[in-house]
Design a protein around this nucleic acid. Structure first.
Length: 263
DNA sequence: CGTGGCTCCTGGCGGC
DNA sequence: TGCCGCCAGGAGCCAC
């Protein structure tokens, strides 16, 4: 699930629970969650160090220790962080476990193991290596326009492309398309400047609103379609049945009445 | 450069 | 109830 708002929530959670904690021990319980880092390297770089700072770019969470190293979390589809003082409360799909000197734990829970851990000494090099675009929450409108200028294809595909803007995934892309009232297959090049400004504003608003609810879908405004992303979902505005199609291999929900291809 | 297909995994749900 | 197939919110790879 984790898209930008979820990862922002994990960041706040990490800050609240794990900053200034000294790492005592780390355990990798499944190698699939390792990116380019080896278990040996994690064992060498983490114990004895203290988490001092966190940053987020797109769907990545960067946590810096009191050394030059950043531990980097990517959550895939099902990853999350769980902090607890009781070993018995650790989630059943804990793939990576940090034990602190304080006796508490930070678990990287990741049932499907699509999440990845990495270690880097420079965030910008890491972002470059992944070819990530500007962070969708902090990009300014001028940069936003420039980034879209050379792009072709369905507007939703462009929005989900992490190399254009980092942070928007399938769910929030659908929400943004709905809120601007544009059909998700609309070719990006057919949008006029007014559409682009609207898309930028809506992207900011949707991401911020979701962050304010700590990415709790239940607390989103009734005008959002996130909770209507199902076979029986209805458009909050006109009550039409939501339709679903595949775009870039991802299930896309939209209102056939409210979202048209602009002419 | 863009798209479609496939893959990595496990859990949950609808259907029979 | 029990089993099976299908589907899922990420992303990398490859062929076209």
């Amino acid at each position: 699930m984790p898209e930008l708002p979820e990862v922002e929530s994990f960041k706040k959670y990490f800050d609240k629970t794990s900053l200034n904690q000294t790492i005592k021990q780390v355990d990798v319980s499944h190698p699939n969650i390792l990116g380019k880092v080896t278990e040996q390297e994690l064992q060498r770089r983490l114990p004895g160090h203290v988490f001092e700072e966190t940053k987020r770019h797109g769907k990545y969470l960067f946590t810096r220790m009191d050394s030059k190293w950043w531990l980097i979390f990517h959550f895939g589809m099902t990853g999350s962080l769980v902090f607890t003082e009781k070993h018995s409360e650790l989630p059943s799909h804990t793939r990576f476990l940090i034990t602190f000197d304080s006796g508490s734990f930070l678990a990287f829970n990741c049932p499907r193991m699509f999440g990845k851990l990495n270690l880097a000494d420079d965030i910008n090099s890491f972002i470059k290596g992944k070819k990530l675009g500007h962070d969708a929450l902090t990009v300014d409108f001028t940069t936003f326009k420039t980034s879209l200028k050379t792009r072709r294809g369905a507007i939703k595909s462009v929005l989900m492309n992490q190399q254009v803007f980092a942070g928007v995934g399938n769910i929030y892309a659908d929400e943004i398309m709905y809120q601007i009232g544009v059909h998700p297959t609309t070719p990006i090049q057919t949008l006029n400047p007014k559409h682009l400004k609207q898309m930028y504003d809506v992207m900011q608003q949707v991401l911020k609103t979701s962050i304010d609810t700590q990415a709790n879908f239940e607390k989103l405004p009734n005008s959002y379609i996130i909770l209507q992303r199902s076979k029986n979902g209805c458009c909050p505005r006109c009550s039409s049945n939501m339709e679903s199609i595949k775009i870039s291999g991802r299930t896309t929900y939209y209102c056939p009445n409210c979202q048209q291809i602009p002419s």
